[in-house]
């Protein structure tokens, strides 16, 4: 452990990272960090904060521990994932391309602590089997907190006023280019809401940086996922809550309203789905639940929405890196 002033500054920085980054992650994941390092856990964010600060002071929680955990948790889940054909670049040339780019100093940066106002490339991890490039953007805002609302009679005009409370929230969006060399696809993962052209702008920025580095020469080709989602709606490896099948001039929705279960649990819906000639519907979307008891490796059950024509997969919950890849593996196996 570094000692003296340097050590105190390091602990201060770490505590700031806990406040702004660590505590914004899901409770289940924070508990996992505490449990893994045998730190007292607690039940809510206030407990976690107190225990994390104490562990940093005692030196039982260090920067490498937090960074290892953050790299598995932050930016995974609650995101939109687009699949593309992988770059044509030879694996052995990647490092040279990175070194020769404007981002050379970021190579080996596992986690960034920055909250930039605009999305900017902030971390690059190159390993023997994958390349991960991350962009960050501060997205803090105000979160409604009704428990802090109050009413007050104004002394001046005698009227009663109601005040709605908002709590300041620190958050940041992570956008990631992820390429596992063994896969027949690479992915752009975006933690930005899809509003208007927001994703188009993000894609433009990312591709601009990737082309500058030399990962891509031209825009990569999206991999259509409609066939995969069609196949998944006929199988039982996920709980299929709904599917929309699109053709020129219309679409067909099959939706289960069951809280536990999906289309497969309702005979009429199952038979309706079977009655569809898949070949007549070029586009398919679907809502799928990947349950932990069906997919042993998942750290939690994962709700996923697939948009076939857009090659987009939306993960509705925060989860871990391995969870996201397990979901993508299942989808890919159906393409």
């Amino acid at each position: 452990m570094p000692g003296g002033e340097k050590g105190a500054a390091e602990k201060r920085d770490l505590k700031e990272a806990v406040r702004t980054i660590v505590l914004t992650q899901g409770n289940a994941f924070i508990k996992e960090l505490l449990r893994k390092h045998k730190i007292q856990i607690g039940t809510n964010k206030a407990d976690f904060s107190k225990n994390l600060h104490a562990a940093i002071d005692e030196g039982t929680l260090t920067r490498p521990m937090i960074e290892e955990w953050l790299s598995e948790v932050e930016g995974w889940g609650n995101q939109h994932i687009y699949l593309f054909e992988p770059p044509k670049l030879a694996i052995g040339e990647i490092k040279d391309k990175l070194v020769g780019s404007n981002f050379a100093e970021l190579i080996g940066t596992a986690v960034s602590y920055a909250f930039p106002e605009q999305l900017e490339l902030s971390a690059i991890a190159l390993a023997a089997d994958h390349l991960s490039i991350a962009w960050h953007k501060g997205t803090g805002g105000w979160e409604r907190t009704p428990s802090k609302d109050f009413q007050r009679a104004d002394d001046d005009d005698g009227e009663v006023y109601k005040y709605n409370a908002y709590r300041e929230r620190f958050d940041r969006a992570v956008v990631r280019f992820a390429w596992r060399f063994a896969d027949a696809y690479c992915a752009i993962m975006i933690q930005v809401p899809i509003e208007g052209d927001s994703h188009r702008d993000v894609h433009a920025l990312i591709l601009n940086d990737l082309k500058h580095i030399g990962i891509f020469e031209n825009d990569p080709i999206r991999i259509p996922l409609s066939e995969a989602f069609k196949a998944m709606t006929l199988k039982h490896d996920t709980v299929v809550q709904s599917t929309r099948m699109m053709t020129d001039g219309g679409h067909l929705d099959v939706v289960s309203t069951l809280s536990e279960g999906g289309i497969a649990d309702v005979r009429a819906l199952r038979e309706a789905r079977r009655g569809v000639d898949d070949k007549s519907f070029a586009g398919t979307d679907g809502m799928f639940h990947f349950l932990q008891d069906q997919h042993a490796g998942l750290s939690r059950s994962v709700k996923v929405q697939g948009y076939g024509l857009e090659s987009r997969v939306r993960v509705w919950v925060q989860c871990k890196r391995e969870d996201v890849y397990q979901v993508l593996d299942v989808i890919w196996a159906n393409t």
Binding site: L258, E260, G261, D265, V266
Partner: peptide, 9 residues
């Protein structure tokens, strides 16, 4: 008995 659905509306 039919098992058509696990929930009734």
């Amino acid at each position: 008995a039919s098992g058509d659905t696990p929930a009734l509306n």
